[in-house]
Design a binder for these strands. Structure first.
Lengths: 117, 117
DNA sequence: TTATCATATGATTAATCATTCATATGTAGG
DNA sequence: CCTACATATGAATGATTAATCATATGATAA
């Protein structure tokens, strides 16, 4: 441990713990990709809309604004990253939030917001 | 409500709820920016390291690899988005996770990972 | 007050990404 | 089958961003 600061021993302990708990590069990449998927305002808005319930593409488009192609691309990104899932119902594809972890993250992110203006 | 699919009445209810609960554009932008801040693997890795405890810049750099300048830029992005906070201790700046919401999000994201390979 | 150490910052460049337009796919009804 | 409808996809381009390099700041110690 390099003596870079005045408490290198403490930091040594922290680093040891951090490295022991550190996910693999692949796991980090997956986590990061998921955060990236929900880090564009238009995609986040879609996710917030879907947090109220299942919707077809046209109604998602109506709820968030924008055009069909853009929304479809955004849905693909969200789905590829397992943020949302889809099922077919006749001519329509219905989208919904993938699981409770996502709902929890959205909820926590909203809470963290309180404290900004 | 446009009759885009076979259950427009149900969707109407969902959209009504979604729009009622929808944060402002500004709030969405803030949330999105925070997700973006933790959506780059190198920054996420820094955050995962800091989740074990407070560290100075040089030790963060040692823990995650990379060079001092890059890490410093990444720390700035995380700090600007209130993901981490800092305090000075003599010659050093010590960084730590900003609050419990962030820790919760990281924990939830790790859980969501289980189910991938 | 000068030298050194720890960290931050500005500018540049290369890579990544979102949006758009045009078109394709798949489904249902006639 | 043929048409209309709902959604998806590919290519192109303009915008955003991360990494790097060089330099600046701010603190300590001699």
């Amino acid at each position: 441990m390099k003596n870079a600061c005045e408490t290198p021993e403490e930091h040594e302990g922290v680093i040891k713990t951090a490295l022991a708990d550190m996910p693999s590069d692949g796991a980090i990449a997956t986590m990061a990709a998921r955060f990236k998927a929900i880090s564009e305002p238009s995609r986040l808005k879609i996710l917030l809309a879907l947090s109220a319930g299942e919707l077809c593409v046209e109604h998602i488009t109506a709820a968030v604004g924008g055009n069909q192609s853009a929304v479809s691309h955004q849905l693909k990104t969200l789905k590829d990253n397992r943020i949302i899932k889809s099922r077919r119902a006749g001519k329509n594809i219905l989208y919904s939030v993938d699981d409770d972890h996502i709902m929890t993250m959205i909820k926590v992110a909203k809470e963290h917001l309180h404290g900004d203006e």
